[in-house]
């Protein structure tokens, strides 16, 4: 079988609705796409529904929200009808997620090493010594120079970049087939950002994983991903290959690309986005 074209995730007409005091708010309004073993970027501004899309796939939508879809299937398993227990088993084991700030996603009172070991042991039957060895190897794989020292540190004792690497190590230890990364590098400095992306890139291609990379940064996503989905007001306005971003058709995509200041492009004032109501229709 050709692993490149095999479909890991199939999303058809996904909708996420939140009840509020003033009525229903549709955060995601009919999103459809499929993911193979590739890097897919989802780009949009705040409120575009990109994060809610990721959370809905992951099963992390707040309980008061309603999710509906014609199809939301991971490797043939219908994610909307599986029991919460099976869903938990999928999460972490076969699907992993990285969030923006490692400070909020790592347990502050448990050492980094123990968190990685615990993650591994909840998904696989391994002995303590073997779990520790594998955790150390994983920390090394995310380019942490002194894994044995970092193993015993607590999350508040490491820098943001180190924390995010530890987070990646924890997410990858169970060997997931698909990973959702929601703004994984937005809280990091630019140079650290590239290191972390480099690690992510290498691990994803070595292990043949499917990656959904959610970000507000169109330029970063286009340089990192194979394919890009552009979202606006809960809908997909354009899907295209990252390499063809220059030939984007939708005025929103083009506007987003244009409005960022570039080194060497002397444009005063910067072109601004003229939002058309029909984009959201």
């Amino acid at each position: 079988m050709n692993r490149k074209t095999e479909t890991l995730l199939d999303v058809d007409d996904l909708r996420v609705t939140f009840p509020t005091r003033t009525g229903l708010i549709e955060a995601v309004r009919g999103v459809s796409f499929s993911l193979g073993r590739e890097r897919l970027g989802i780009v949009g501004e705040s409120g575009s529904g990109k994060s809610q899309t990721g959370r809905a796939i992951m099963g992390l939508t707040p309980p008061q929200a309603r999710i509906s879809a014609n199809r939301l299937a991971f490797d043939g398993i219908d994610l909307l009808s599986v029991s919460p227990r099976e869903r938990r088993a999928l999460r972490g084991n076969r699907i992993a997620m990285i969030l923006q700030d490692p400070k909020y996603s790592l347990d502050p009172v448990m050492s980094i090493g123990r968190q990685i070991v615990e993650t591994l042991r909840t998904h696989e039957k391994v002995g303590k010594a073997e779990a520790r060895d594998r955790a150390l190897a994983m920390l090394e794989a995310v380019q942490i120079r002194d894994p044995a020292r970092v193993f015993d540190l607590h999350p508040h004792e490491v820098s943001g970049g180190m924390g995010q690497r530890a987070m990646i190590a924890m997410m990858l230890i169970a060997g997931p087939e698909m990973m959702i990364a929601d703004e994984p590098t937005s809280a990091l400095d630019v140079t650290v950002q590239l290191d972390v992306l480099g690690i992510l890139d290498r691990l994803v291609s070595e292990r043949g994983m499917g990656l959904i990379f959610i970000s507000h940064d169109l330029r970063l996503v286009s340089s990192f991903c194979d394919r890009v989905i552009v979202m606006y007001a809960g809908k997909v306005v354009e899907q295209l290959k990252a390499s063809e971003l220059g030939q984007a058709q939708h005025p929103y995509t083009r506007g987003l690309l244009n409005c960022m200041p570039k080194i060497g492009a002397d444009r005063h004032p910067l072109p601004v986005l003229d939002r058309k109501p029909e984009w959201a229709a």
Binding site: E45, S46, H216, D217, L218, G255, L256, C259, M260, P261, H268, P269, L270, P271, V272, L273
Partner: peptide, 15 residues
């Protein structure tokens, strides 16, 4: 701020 809003604010500051 979002990129499109950033452009508006930068333009305002220059103005």
């Amino acid at each position: 701020l979002d990129a499109s809003v950033q452009a508006e604010v930068l333009n305002l500051l220059e103005e």
